[in-house]
Design a binder for these strands. Structure first.
Lengths: 139, 139
DNA sequence: CTATATCCTACTAAACCAATCGGAATTTGT
DNA sequence: ACAAATTCCGATTGGTTTAGTAGGATATAG
């Protein structure tokens, strides 16, 4: 998603180009990106010269949403997931420790929902500036 | 640990009794508890009538410490672990997303280090009160 | 001496996850 | 019409992790 955002002015971005730049296999990306498309995060353009585009502005993309789409619901233990989280409390005291996991879960979600794709782009720019500075020092 | 804390006045607590109450296998506990002992969380007394005791007061036991002892360092991805966290940044942009994981990691540690075993004991008591209330309503 | 415990070192089985594979469907450019 | 580029889909693999089991050694109270 970061790579897509960095190249959003250049038209559709092929998975091949992302794979090359990010040193990931195209096959692997091929498996992941369709989930983002189904969730309305990216738009796809098939055929030659096709590729992917962000469906929203980077400021409007929470990385929490991206993570949840790619990795499923964020839950440190199964019973803190909304769906399947009822069957574990037969055990004495289990629900006390469950409260801990609920707090952990909420805290994680708060963090990842407080960062947008645009925030990450800023980070990339900073990094590039730093790389240039190091280069200057060496020269 | 919660079970141990609940029975700390009754002398050494055997894993068998914990296993019965908490519906866990004694074998499984046998595997876990020695780690807590080595870390100075509990004291063990071998032989007949032996068992385990908390080595500190419940107020002084952070559940973050318990989790880290039993599960290892808390790190959402490998490269946010102090030791092995250097080799992944060959990838372009990787360190930008790493910042996210660092924030997640710190947030998790903050949560679990803000809760003590004593806090969980309070929760157990509340739960028991609730159970009694439900019982009363039915009667 | 015996029953009750902790202690230690493996081993097993299931789940999970990154990554691969083969091939079908779609579109652009010539 | 054709060829190249590209998304799309389902199945499979291989490695790691993790919950749980197993066997047997060691220590202590009564």
């Amino acid at each position: 998603m970061v790579d897509l955002a960095q190249h959003l002015t250049e038209g559709p971005v092929s998975l091949k180009s992302v794979a090359d730049r990010q040193k990931l296999s195209e096959r692997y990306l091929e498996q992941l990106v369709p989930d983002l498309r189904k969730a309305g995060m990216v738009k796809s353009i098939r055929g030659s010269q096709g590729g992917y585009l962000l469906a929203k502005k980077p400021e409007d993309i929470l990385i929490g949403d991206v993570i949840r789409i790619l990795e499923g619901p964020i839950a440190p233990v199964e019973c803190t997931d909304q769906k399947s989280g009822e069957d574990c409390c037969e055990k004495t005291n289990f629900c006390v420790t469950r409260e801990v996991w609920v707090k952990v879960r909420d805290s994680i979600n708060d963090v990842v929902d407080s960062i947008t794709l645009a925030d990450l782009l800023e980070g990339v720019e900073k990094e590039e500036v730093e790389r240039l500075n190091i280069f200057d020092e060496k020269a």
